[in-house]
Each structure stands twice: as structure tokens, then as C-alpha cells.
Write a protein that binds this DNA or RNA. Structure first.
Length: 500
RNA sequence: GCGGGCGUAGCUCAGUGGUAGAGCGUCACGUUGCCAACGUGAAUGUCGUGAGUUCAAGUCUCAUCGCCCGCUCCA
């Protein structure tokens, strides 16, 4: 009858059927608000409210603890959002994030030019030659994937997928810079810094959590795909040849993380990328997907685990050597080509010297890259439940204790006989160890239900018996059952149950 | 960007050209003896925004912003 996040016991209650119900709850309880709400909102931007910010922080902390604090082979990093524009040239984003899109005049469907199927040639519309792709003639033999009409396309138009801004207050003398479209590149550019300061040896990884920005063509479904979003990324550097086993390692580690935090197994799956779907840098990639309640139910990516090989470090070696060219081109990043890779690239400035094999090489990289916001959405969706209790509906969020925004709420049963004072004393002690909440207003039943909707695992109630034997009741969110415990043992009991 | 739906109190929604509403929630006081109790009272509205038509617009028209669904897109 009772669902248990530890044993994955059967869930009797109704789960979330449509996103709307969750959106309403998020607003009602202060998890997530529309950005700039009083101005009519700004599309696909969201703000995290009092409960949401706690949940989001808990998600990030759980990740950090899992991949950094409890491992010997991982360290953390926090890079700036603005980076040297040539970073994005080297990574390929400046070129690849300027997609060309053409619109079918017949059905108004927009399609990426390089995705259009034609009669012949496969690479003519590749990004390296935007001018060639721009030629409208090149689309005359292309077929619209929607309506099947041939050659009825508008001029290809470039889509800028990176946010641009200027650095320097003097507009005439300012430089175009980009808001990072991923946190990964900050890790690559600090690879040698970390190597030189930590005495780490391969294999080791660097983790980072932070905001990234992408001008997505379309956004989707509440906080699932937004243009400003937060990432949790790992770049795990390993000896070439061991990359496949480390890829397997991280695949399993990351899936386990979601399961350990209470997401139901049947709502998670791996989805390997097909060869033609792989990004330009990747040798292999698998997504961890969650069954979201968009529409009729939709498997969508939570996280991708990619084998990036030695692509990025090699690219940055080229980028480093292209800086002179960049100055010569008047700091025009788009017009500065990367210099060619020398023959001895494996001994370059971002290479690694292996003491055991006495060899120098560029490490391979496994990248588990997760979206904080969409992960949070998955935790919310999976925790959402509606139950019927004595003919009344009970809404609750069955968060794993370590994710719950509030760990414990403390109530006096009624507002008299010294109960509020005792309850406050308990509250003041608990709040030093974890987020706690005090409430004395209205009927105790109502207070319990309010905490159910916030996902608070435990409610502690001071009642008439407390004055006699110093015991209080602990009410469990999921089972609604109460147990009595001595106040002296309360903190220890809760810390054990909460894993804190 | 296309097509469909929607936007009225914190939430869910009613209101088809003539005084801005309900339920729930919130707050105060009273009551209280463990699951959204009860009584009394109270606060809360740019009717998404801006124009237009009209004696009169939440209601009709146009534009615009936002959300949901389906496409498209998601290196």
C-alpha cells in the first residue's frame, strides 16, 4: 500500500497525467514561477521560488556529492560564463551553431538545410562552406520532409544558436563575446591548470555546475527546454584505449544516481545514439531518458554520456596557435580560421605525460552531461502523487529525503498549554542541521497536508503528552503513520532517516 | 516558425454587449486534542497587454505577449 523509495514498493496512488497539474502545483506552492510574470512573462524563462530553489540546490548537491566529494578521481571547477571567443571557434560552436534553415513555401515548415534530403551529394551544405549552402540553387533538388514538395524553399537563413553580447562599455572599441552554450569548454581550457595544481594522474575527471545559454529554435514544455539553463557536466580524462570501459562505467554510475534518488525504474531508459545522430566530436553517445508526461507521454533526454575522444583538447591546441591570426584579423572570430594541426600534435601543450609508459599523448574524454532543470522536472514529476484518503484527495510529492526542500516541520498540536514554546525549541535545534519549518496556525491536519504538497518527509508534533514524558510524534509523509519518540532521540532519529 | 486550444482573485473556473462572481486557498479573532474540522469577520482583480467598434466591451474586431497540445527544430 505504501510506496517506498528504498524498496521501490508498489504505488497505489495516481501519478501525474498531465503537465498542467504540476505547473499549477509549482506555482501554488512556490516552486517555479514564470519569469517577468508581472510584465506578461518572458518566453521560456522561469524563476525558482522558495521551495524550488531548495529543491534545485539539493539536486545539485546530490550530484556534487556523488561525482566529486565521494570519489578520489574527481575534482570540481567553476568557470566564468564569458570566455575568449576563440574558445568557441576551436570547439566548433561558432561555425556549427550558425545553422542554415530554409522554409518550404508550400507548408511553411522550417528545416535545417543540411538535413534536407536531395537527389545527390551529402556534404555540399556542410557548415564549413556556408556560402555554398547559401546558394539557393543548391535547394532546387531538395525535398520538403513535411509535404514532399521539391525545390520550393525560401533563401536559407542563418540561425544564431549562441547568445552574443559585447565586452567593453565603449561600443566602438568593444569585442563580440558569447554566453557559453555549454560548461564543458571551461573544463577543457583549464585541463592543464588542474593538472599542474592537483598532482592528479590519469584517469581523473573534472566536474562543473553552471548556467549555459542556447538560442534554441523552439523551446518546450515548462522548464524542460529553455534558452537559459543549468548544466552539471563531467569531463573524465582517461588513457586512450580505456575510453570504452570508462564510458560504460559512467553510463552505469549516472543511471544509478537517478535510481538511488527515487526515480522509478520503469520511467528511465538508455537510448544509444545512432551513428548518423552522433555529434561531430563523439565516438559514441547514450542518453538517459525519462518518460515525461508531455502529451501522451514522451521519452526525453535527461543526460547524455558521450565519448568525446581527444577531439576537444586537440582543437584547443589548434585554437591556442591561432591567436596571432585572430589579432591580425581584427579580432573577428568568425573570419579567423584555425591553423592546421602539426604532425606532433600528440606532444602539444595540452598533452599528458604518462610516467609509467614514459609516453606523451592527448587523453580521451568521457562526458556525462546532465541538465539540472530537466532533472529537477523529472524528480518533480516522479514524486507527484494524488491519493484518496477518506474520500478526500491528498496531493503529495514523494521526494527522496535528500531532495526534499524541507526535511522536517514542527507543530504544536494546539496553540496553548506551552506546546508552541516546546515546539519552537525543537524547531530551533533541528534547523541547525537541516531545513526545517515551524507552523502553529489552524488545524494540525491542514498543516500536515500542506507539508505533503511541499514534499516534507517528516512532521513532528508536540502534544499534551509531551509535557509529561518529553515525547513527540513523528508523522511519515508517505504512510501518514505516526510514531512516538523521546525528544532526546529525535535529532539522531531524523538524521539517520534523512541520511544527513 | 506553422496549426489547434487557452488567458477573469494566489489556485480551479463561471460570467455571450449593461453594477466583477463562486469554490478552494490566504489573513485575523474565537474554538481546538492528530489528518485540507467549525464559527465570525477581512483582504485580494491593469478581466494578459495595446488599439479599435459602441452610448456602453471581461464579452465583438485587430494587433501583441504568454502558456498548453501537435508539427518542425534540438551541433
Amino acid at each position: 500500500m505504501v510506496y517506498c523509495y528504498l524498496c521501490k514498493g508498489k504505488l497505489m496512488a495516481e501519478t501525474l497525467k498531465k503537465l498542467d497539474d504540476l505547473v499549477a502545483l509549482c506555482k501554488r506552492r512556490g516552486f517555479i514561477f514564470q519569469s517577468s510574470d508581472i510584465y506578461g512573462g518572458l518566453a521560456s524563462c522561469y524563476d525558482y521560488g522558495p521551495l524550488g530553489v531548495e529543491l534545485k540546490r539539493n539536486v545539485k548537491n546530490a550530484w556534487w556529492k556523488s561525482v566529486v566529494q565521494t570519489r578520489d578521481d574527481m575534482v570540481g571547477l567553476d568557470c566564468s560564463i564569458l570566455m575568449h571567443p576563440m574558445v568557441w571557434k576551436a570547439s566548433g560552436h561558432v561555425d556549427k551553431f550558425a545553422d542554415l534553415i530554409a522554409e518550404c513555401k508550400k507548408c511553411n515548415t522550417r528545416t535545417r538545410v543540411d538535413h534536407l534530403q536531395g537527389v545527390e551529394n551529402e556534404e555540399t551544405t556542410h557548415h564549413e562552406q556556408p556560402e555554398a549552402a547559401m546558394a539557393k540553387d543548391g535547394l532546387n533538388d531538395k525535398v520538403c520532409p513535411k509535404c514532399g514538395t521539391t525545390g520550393q524553399f525560401t533563401e536559407p537563413m542563418p540561425f544564431k544558436l549562441m547568445f552574443e553580447t559585447q565586452m567593453g562599455a565603449n561600443v566602438d572599441d568593444s569585442m563580440k563575446v558569447y554566453l557559453r552554450p555549454e560548461t564543458a569548454q571551461g573544463i577543457f581550457t583549464n585541463f592543464s591548470n588542474v593538472l599542474n595544481t592537483t598532482r592528479l594522474k590519469l584517469p581523473f575527471g573534472i566536474a562543473q555546475i553552471g548556467k549555459s545559454f542556447r538560442n534554441e529554435v523552439t523551446t518546450k514544455a515548462f522548464i524542460f527546454r529553455t534558452r537559459e539553463f543549468e548544466q552539471m557536466e563531467i569531463e573524465f580524462f582517461c588513457v586512450p584505449g580505456t575510453d570504452e570501459q570508462w564510458w560504460e562505467h559512467w553510463k552505469n554510475e549516472r543511471m544509478k544516481w537517478y535510481l538511488d534518488l527515487g526515480i522509478r525504474k520503469e520511467n528511465l531508459r538508455f537510448r544509444p545514439h545512432a551513428d548518423d545522430e552522433l555529434a561531430h566530436y563523439a565516438k559514441a553517445c547514450v542518453d538517459i531518458e525519462y518518460l515525461f508526461p508531455f502529451g501522451q507521454g514522451d521519452w526525453q533526454e535527461l543526460e547524455g554520456i558521450a565519448n568525446r575522444t581527444d577531439y576537444d583538447l586537440r582543437q584547443h591546441q589548434r585554437g591556442m596557435r591561432s591567436i596571432t591570426k585572430w589579432f591580425e584579423n581584427g579580432r573577428d572570430t568568425e573570419k579567423t580560421p584555425l591553423v592546421d594541426e602539426p604532425d606532433d600534435w600528440s606532444k602539444g601543450p595540452l598533452s599528458y605525460f604518462d610516467d609509467e609508459s614514459r609516453k606523451r599523448y592527448i587523453p580521451y574524454v568521457i562526458e556525462p552531461s546532465a541538465g539540472v532543470d530537466r532533472g529537477m522536472l523529472a524528480f518533480l514529476v516522479d514524486a507527484y502523487a494524488e491519493e484518496e484518503v477518506r474520500g478526500e484527495k491528498r496531493n503529495l510529492l514523494r521526494f527522496h529525503p535528500s531532495l526534499a526542500p524541507i526535511k522536517a516541520a514542527v507543530f504544536p498540536l494546539v496553540k496553548k498549554d506551552g506546546m508552541p514554546e516546546k515546539a519552537r525549541t525543537i524547531y530551533n535545534e533541528l534547523r541547525q542541521y537541516f531545513t526545517s519549518f515551524y507552523d502553529q496556525k489552524g488545524a494540525v491536519g491542514r498543516r500536515y497536508r500542506r507539508q505533503d504538497e511541499a514534499g516534507t518527509p517528516f512532521c513532528i508534533t508536540v502534544d499534551g503528552q509531551t509535557a509529561e514524558d518529553n515525547t513527540v510524534t513523528i508523522r511519515d509523509r508517505d504512510s501518514m503513520e505516526q510514531t512516538r519518540i523521546n525528544c532526546d532521540k529525535l535529532l539522531g532519529y531524523l538524521r539517520e532517516k534523512l541520511g544527513i
